[in-house]
Amino acid sequence: MKSIKKASKNETELIMQIKNGEEEALIDLCYLYKPLINKVKSMYHVRYYDSQDWDQDALIICHDSAKKFDLKKGKFSSYYKTRLTNHAKSLVRYDNAYRRQALKQSISLETARKNNLSPMKKDSTSIPEVPLSENIAILTAHLSNLEINALLVELGLKNQDEILHRLNISELTLSRAHSRLAQKMRKTLLN
């Protein structure tokens, strides 16, 4: 029973320190709620969100919660848990909404046949006036080492497993580099 009162008192002191601008107390307060943070991490899956992203969001939410929390009303643990869980749910909702965009815009083949709809014609992309070789030179000048390796894997010049082992990175990291590469290619080659 004494340890609960001590932890509660310690929590109150940490919240007061954060309110007074002592940011070092934030790490200690987050450490008290590490089990809660880990539970939320395990309950909600967000595509391309790793453990560090969750920890950073938990830290930001903890700081904001401590600043806004009224010590006279309720328990901080309940307040923080609610805010962290709501944030996780918002991330999941956003991720799911993004995935459903194509589904919302599509219609079934039967509906298209009933309404005598023909397939949509793809927009033709204008041919850039700058020679392609110059655009490629501009593109490669703006790529990081990881993005260059992702390009080599995509072109089939390097083996993905070899790159993962040589650079000591995860598949997710290489996938993110590939996404950045695609964005840079669109921006450089199509504009």
Rank of each mutant, 00 (worst) to 15 (best):
D123E: 11
Q56Y: 12
E162M: 05
K73R: 14
I60K: 15
E162L: 03
M120F: 07
Y79K: 01
L59G: 09
S179L: 13
S42A: 10
L36S: 02
D95L: 01
L172I: 09
S144M: 12
R99Y: 11
V92C: 08
R113S: 09
K121T: 06
F76D: 01
N20R: 13
Q56S: 11
K89S: 08
N86T: 04
R47N: 13
H142R: 14
K67Y: 10
S106L: 10
N115W: 03
L91Q: 15
Q17T: 02
K73C: 09
N20E: 14
I138Y: 02
E147Y: 05
Y48E: 14
K104A: 08
S51Y: 07
L172V: 07
T85L: 01
Q183S: 14
K89V: 05
E154G: 12
I61S: 01
L91C: 13
T125S: 05
Q56I: 11
M16D: 08
L71T: 09
Y98L: 12
I4Y: 15
R166C: 02
N149T: 05
T188M: 02
C62Q: 02
I60N: 12
E134H: 12
L146V: 11
M185H: 01
T85V: 15
L84T: 00
M185L: 12
A141E: 15
C62G: 04
M185Y: 01
K34P: 00
